[in-house]
């Protein structure tokens, strides 16, 4: 049986807005294909084992909780996380987790908060909160599932450096800055996004993209992922695309 290990970073601190749905989805979609997904929580004081990780997940957090983990992340885990990123471990980092992977965060008072620097992006506090349904186009996904549907709730505006591609182009909602038309970041196998909560359940193609990348790295000669029916997911997607993009 093929096995993958998902490291859930700071599950007790970065767990806003149903981010748990992303892990449930990865776990089930592995299970349905006879793949075992081990979920390992890694929090304050726990070592981060870069060699063990196939997938790393970091969710969004509240300011209070993010401040708690800052020191632990920077002094105890930074080197291993950077090593994991550069050796193509799959990352899914949402909202606060996405910001944490970047170089720094500039607060409204102009204070610079150091972040991990694993991803060439930086975030500035914005004046208004960007909240609502978010739909963006991801060219690397299969044609019929390129539109990714999520929900964003952030005030930070994230800017990409030259080495980082956007995850997608915004079709509905705000995205990275609310004005540059891009959403999220894609670098090696790292995906950062403001689409928190149930991103993967509504976008099974994106979930499978992450799983394929992880499998290919761990089992280079292994077979590809078998397709799943996804009828309910398709129905939920169609309803929302119709409602927000007025597609038929």
């Amino acid at each position: 049986m093929r096995e993958l290990t998902l490291i859930h970073l700071y599950p007790d601190l970065m767990n806003l807005y149903g981010d748990r749905g992303n892990i449930v989805t990865l776990k089930r979609r592995c299970e349905w294909r006879g793949i075992q997904l081990n979920v390992v929580p890694v929090s304050l004081g726990d070592p981060f084992d870069a060699d063990r990780a196939d997938i790393v997940f970091i969710g969004g957090g509240q300011d209070y909780e993010q401040a708690i983990l800052q020191d632990d992340a920077l002094t105890k885990k930074r080197d291993d996380i950077l090593r994991a990123v550069e050796s193509d471990v799959v990352f899914l980092a949402i909202c606060g987790g996405y910001q944490l992977l970047g170089s720094h965060y500039l607060t409204g008072e102009g204070k610079r908060i150091e972040c991990l620097g694993a991803l060439d992006v930086c975030t500035e506090a914005g004046r208004k909160r960007l909240i609502g349904n978010l739909i963006f186009d991801c060219p690397f996904l299969p044609e019929e599932n390129r539109k990714v549907i999520g929900f964003e709730n952030h005030s930070g505006m994230t800017f990409r450096g030259p080495s980082v591609n956007p995850l997608g182009r915004v079709l509905y909602g705000h995205g990275n800055t609310g004005s540059d038309g891009t959403e999220g970041a894609l670098y090696r196998n790292v995906i950062g996004s403001y689409s928190h909560g149930s991103l993967l359940p509504k976008n099974p193609a994106l979930a499978d993209f992450l799983l394929e990348r992880a499998l290919l790295r761990r089992y280079p000669a292994g077979e590809r992922l078998s397709p799943l029916p996804d009828e309910l997911e398709r129905k939920a997607r169609e309803g929302l695309l119709k409602r927000f993009l007025h597609t038929s």
């Binding site: 807005y17 149903g18 981010d19 748990r20 749905g21 449930v24 909240i131 609502g132 349904n133 929900f151 709730n153 928190h196 909560g197 149930s198 359940p201």
Partner: peptide
């Protein structure tokens, strides 16, 4: 609540 992702925090499992 316009965001329904909270449903994923309910222990339906």
């Amino acid at each position: 609540g316009t965001d329904v992702s909270w449903l994923w925090d309910v222990d339906f499992e």
